[in-house]
Simulated scan of single mutants.
Amino acid sequence: MRDPARILVVDDVADNVEILRMRLTSLGYEVVVAEDGEQALAKVRAALPDLVLLDIMMPRVDGLEVVRRLKADKSLPFIPVILVTAKASPKDVAAGLDAGGDDYLTKPVDHGALVARVRAMLRIKTLHDEVQALNKGLEAKVREQVEELGRVGRLRRFLAPQLAQAIVSAGDEKILENHRREVVALFCDLRGFTGFSETAEPEDIMAVLKEYHGAVGPLIRKHEGTLDRFTGDGMLVFFNDPLPCEDAPERAARLAIEMRDAVAGLVGSWTKRGHKLGLGIGMAQGYATLGRIGFEDRFDYTAIGAVINLAARLCGEAGDGEVLMSGRLAAAVEAMAEVEDLGERLLKGMARPAAVAKLRALRLA
């Protein structure tokens, strides 16, 4: 509410208007006046007063009709109305309050009553405005939270929840635009899955995939890897993007060992059901181009580059329970892992031999 408060005095008798104007002005209020109901409606919309003192008995449009129209106009803010009437019977007062009036004064207007009722209505106006401002702030906060939940939901399609939340908290998705960065890529898929899927019932295939994904998915989240995509039994995970982490090689190594062990725990059950399956993993370290692809309703975050191809080829070369890695990655994790150098190998689809190593286990801390 403004200071000083603005009060609209409405009466078709000029002497009444002048008396109220003088009294209110002496109390420090800003006063505007209207001579009839039509003028009052126009003045309210133009001046947006903080309080209206409204005579009931007026020609053309009386005070009761004026207050009804004001209270029905949703475009107006809350403006308390004190009805000023020469009729003070309970029936008349009830009719005024029922029409939308907030209080009333009887003529001739007593100065003490005028001061008390004006101050009371202005206090109500102030409290109402404060509540409205609080509500608007809460509404804005709710909208922001809903938008944030939507953004988190979209980001969680391919990011660990911690990373998705961090990006949303930063308020900037530019990090998801195309860029180049060094990453550690991890490819894994099930050994024997192609033959299994050619002969098994669809329900059995879906059951195996559900168990497989249920075992390795939480591990990806645990180590805060970025899940690129599922391709049936295969998946690509990479580290150090979109948010950087200094220990990307170590995280990838830990994830690989835990994924291998988790799937090993499922193999017994699969074997009893006649499914000959295992897990192979390939990892490499190098530079890739990363970014968001797709369209508004469905997008993915992906990595492209030689390092991704190398990890995929190493995965294809790995036997059941093996974790193969590039020579560069092996050098990065040798302090915390047991690594066997396998020398150079010519991998399928690659023009030159690549240095390959096998990750056997993590060293005890």
Rank of each mutant, 00 (worst) to 15 (best):
G150Y: 08
I82L: 10
D300L: 00
V339T: 00
T25F: 11
C245L: 13
E334M: 04
R154S: 12
I175Y: 13
A140T: 13
R21T: 15
I19T: 10
G37M: 08
R251S: 14
R229D: 15
V339S: 01
R363S: 06
L64W: 03
L64Y: 10
D55R: 02
I7W: 14
L236A: 02
N309S: 13
M325Q: 13
R352T: 07
Y104A: 10
S89H: 04
M58C: 09
R260I: 03
T231V: 06
D62E: 07
L54H: 03
P249I: 03
V81G: 00
R298T: 08
G282D: 02
R151Q: 09
V13F: 06
L310F: 04
L27T: 02
A94V: 11
M283H: 03
V13A: 14
I281P: 00
L186R: 00
G280Q: 08
L83K: 00
G286I: 01
A164Y: 04
P242Y: 00
H213F: 15
R254V: 08
G280H: 01
K348V: 09
D297C: 07
L8D: 09
T289H: 12
A252P: 15
S326E: 08
R157D: 11
Q39V: 13
G349S: 09
V81Q: 01
L176G: 09
L163Q: 12
L64D: 10
A288W: 06
G217R: 01
E148F: 12
G153R: 06
G294R: 06
M283S: 06
A357H: 04
R68Q: 14
V33L: 15
L190V: 05
Q39C: 11
P59G: 15
F299W: 11
R117S: 12
L138Y: 13
T302K: 02
A113E: 15
D228N: 06
R180N: 10
V109N: 08
M1P: 14
A116M: 14
R292M: 13
V9S: 07
T199A: 10
K210C: 11
E317L: 08
R157I: 05
L64F: 12
A46S: 09
L41W: 09
G268F: 03
G225E: 00
V267C: 08
H179S: 12
Y104V: 11
L149P: 05
G321D: 13
I293Q: 06
Y29M: 10
G137Q: 15
K210N: 15
A72I: 09
M57A: 14
D12C: 04
E147W: 10
R143S: 13
S269E: 11
E30G: 10
A113M: 15
V13E: 15
A311S: 09
G28W: 05
P244H: 07
P90C: 09
E147S: 12
A335C: 07
R191A: 12
G294D: 07
D247L: 01
I220R: 02
D102A: 01
G150N: 07
R23A: 14
A335S: 13
D341W: 09
L190T: 03
A86H: 06
A312K: 00
L290Q: 06
P353M: 04
S197E: 02
L83W: 02
V115Y: 12
G232F: 02
V183H: 01
V152I: 14
K222H: 14
E130L: 13
E182G: 11
E173F: 09
